[in-house]
Amino acid sequence: MCLAIPGKVIKIKENDIADVEIGGIVREVGLHLAPETKEGDYVLVHAGYAIQTIDEEAARETLKLWEELGIVETP
């Protein structure tokens, strides 16, 4: 029901607005709902707002788990 796409915060400007890079394009995004966001973080962008910062560690864990699934044959 809700498209949201990961993007990288490249510059935080005034009034909780940031430039966010999504696959090489840059759009202004409101950080009001994710005020802890720092430059360099990935955020999930929906309808012009960041609705969450992406948890890099959780993402790495997911990918690691998958990698293992790919390499290790399950019995």
């Binding site: 949201a4 709902l33 994710a34 005020p35 999930l44 609705i51 969450q52």
Partner: peptide
């Protein structure tokens, strides 16, 4: 979807 979902969600959004 653990890279973006926390058990308590986004508390600032919920407060808003």
């Amino acid at each position: 979807y653990s890279r973006s979902v926390r058990p308590r969600g986004n508390e600032i959004a919920l407060q808003t």
